[in-house]
């Protein structure tokens, strides 16, 4: 399937990527200024988040991980409430109990976010099982990294999804890094999709920095899931441009590799493709900045949770 994407849709994806980039840059800057705890930013990977999430319907469910801001913002999360969560404020999506690492937003269908790498893969099987038991037509999109693919739960999840025909869109964001270890040190091949093929699952590996290509591939994967009832595996091949978390001096990163990927920035590429004038591009950036500044200020001004919150939400 080769879905055409009209200019309006592409512009919307550009705006979404800009919002994510601006959000992450602000979070990193505030960490550096000592005003926020460190976060795992998704800078450089915006196309993967926006391309996939744009291809989903609102009743589809999403599981994500520690590097979730892109997925959440692409889904429509309020940056003010995300920052509030990062700052441990009561208005955060998890009342400040999560912090940046495990932000679930059930009202947006972003469920069971866990920072235990590989947990998303286990949990996605159950989420998809429930959806299929309930005869829902929704699918479950599970975002995880190349590092998560090294956990046993990766194979356990794919195998169960294949034999139980679970409607899961696996989205492996292969960003070449597993915290401070290069992916190359952890596996003999480049493409994680190869492992999925051996589980009998249809796959595609796509340029994860080309948002339109990601969108099209996600649409095709979703169509496959709906047509066959089988899971689908989409690998977005991309790069973690900043450190694992803030602060991280990236002293262990190959400078040439980083520089090469920087020239393939997903935002710059789409902007060039859409042939935006300098002033049009600037206007988009200004709009994102204004929204992010406002969100940050709201979060900073928000109150902390009452101490009585400490012992709430432990049991149902």
């Amino acid at each position: 399937m080769n879905e055409t994407i009209n200019r309006k849709a592409s512009l919307a994806m550009l705006e979404s990527m800009l919002l994510i980039r601006t959000y992450e840059e602000k979070a990193a800057a505030m960490q550096a200024a000592g005003q926020a705890a460190g976060t795992c930013t998704s800078i450089g990977q915006e196309a993967s988040a926006v391309g996939v999430v744009s291809a989903l319907s609102m009743d589809d469910l999403i599981l994500t991980n520690h590097r979730s801001a892109g997925h959440l913002l692409a889904r429509g999360a309020d940056p003010a409430r995300l920052y509030a969560e990062v700052l441990g404020k009561a208005s955060g999506y998890c009342k400040g109990k999560s912090g940046s690492l495990h932000i679930s937003v059930r009202e947006l269908g972003v469920v069971l976010t866990s920072t235990i790498v590989g947990a998303e893969l286990s949990l996605a099987a159950g989420v998809a099982l429930a959806l299929s038991m309930q005869e829902s037509s929704a699918i479950t999109a599970c975002f995880f990294g190349d590092g998560a693919a090294c956990e046993g739960s990766f194979h356990e999840s794919l195998n169960l999804a294949a034999v139980w025909r679970l409607p899961i869109l696996y989205v492996c964001e292969n960003n070449q890094w597993q915290a401070f270890v290069h992916r190359r040190e952890t596996m003999p091949m480049d493409r994680i999709a190869n492992w999925a093929i051996e589980h009998g699952i249809e796959t595609a590996t796509v340029d994860g920095n080309d948002v339109e290509a990601v969108y099209r591939a996600a649409k095709a994967g979703i169509a496959h899931i709906r047509a066959t009832g089988q899971p689908y595996f989409l690998e977005t091949y991309t790069y973690r441009v900043r450190g694992h978390y803030e602060p991280d001096d990236q002293s262990y990163v190959d400078k040439n590799e980083l520089a090469a990927w920087r020239t393939r920035d997903p935002i710059d590429q789409l902007q060039a493709k859409l042939q935006l004038s300098a002033s049009e591009a600037q206007a988009l950036r200004d709009r994102a900045s204004a929204r992010i500044e406002d969100a940050w200020n709201q979060a900073v001004g928000a109150p902390y949770p009452a101490i009585s919150e400490l012992t709430k939400d432990v049991y149902a």
Binding site: G88, K97, Y304
Partner: peptide, 16 residues
């Protein structure tokens, strides 16, 4: 600490 998972929010973490 009380019988709760460790919260992230600074004042809650302190109270914990």
């Amino acid at each position: 600490s009380p019988d709760v998972p460790a919260p992230s929010s600074y004042p809650l973490e302190l109270a914990f």
